[in-house]
Design a protein around this nucleic acid. Structure first.
Lengths: 135, 135
DNA sequence: CTTTTTGCAAAACATTTGCATGTAA
DNA sequence: TTACATGCAAATGTTTTGCAAAAAG
């Protein structure tokens, strides 16, 4: 092995930049769509490869949803926030966990070095609830 | 509406029974495989439909993984748990939130009717941490 | 009978991979 | 140069759907 880590490519930079400019999580497909719309010339396969590389390098983390994987650039542990989303209309409300410190404490207990965490609450908002009298 | 809820079918019972007899989570594909091996005559599409029906009726819940959805029969609300996963080796540890009730309380505050919630902690387990002296 | 469920195969998607070609280093 | 990255299309794997036939009520 003559040592060679990662090559600097336009596509790689584009993916990283785009991901970092995102507020929350985004899918590879969606990210690719945005990059393309913005004029970037990049294939979907490359988006996946870059995204997976970022995750492996711990520069991003991913969560699984019924629609597939969602990626997010890693930020300062403080900067992040959680959401509560209405599974009916999609409304999203930002919520604040009672004890953010808990995450790191459990981790320490198990010898983990916490990198990030996700918390999502799904439900039906009052508006949708009243709307759907049927069921 | 002449009122008609759900029809009782052999396949439906088979799926529910099989799911309830499972220890943990299982995928639709895997469940179908087992049912078939046990002689049940049921199509994969039906397994999916039954499973999704159970989830909608809150008789089962599902989690998303990179390999797809995993289902589990619902038990006492207390029984569900969250995970902490090592982003390096994939090891998953079950963790217990300090205050499960918090989820429903925030929801109520915002007029939400909580349906489910997710909590995931990402990090590096001790084993991987020591192992990766290189980097 | 009437309406829901099933099965099957096709359709939809998300994600990965093989390979020839382009391109950092 | 030369090994790694990209693009494209084909391959995978999961989940959904259309539709005619079977089953429940």
């Amino acid at each position: 092995m003559t040592s060679t880590r990662t090559r600097r490519t336009a596509q790689g930079a584009a993916v990283r930049t785009a991901l970092e400019s995102m507020a929350g999580f985004i899918s590879a497909q969606e990210l690719h769509r945005r990059l393309s719309d913005d004029g970037s010339k990049i294939g979907i396969a490359t988006v996946y490869r870059q995204l997976n590389a970022l995750v492996e390098n711990q520069e991003a983390d991913a969560i699984s949803t019924p629609e597939g994987q969602l990626y997010r650039a890693c930020e300062d542990p403080q900067t992040h926030h959680h959401h509560m989303v209405c599974t009916s209309c999609g409304t999203t409300i930002e919520i604040e966990p009672p004890d953010e410190a808990w995450f790191t404490s459990v981790a320490r207990t198990h010898g983990f070095d916490v990198h990030s965490h996700t918390l999502e609450v799904f439900g039906i908002c009052s508006a949708c609830r009243s709307a759907s009298s049927a069921r």
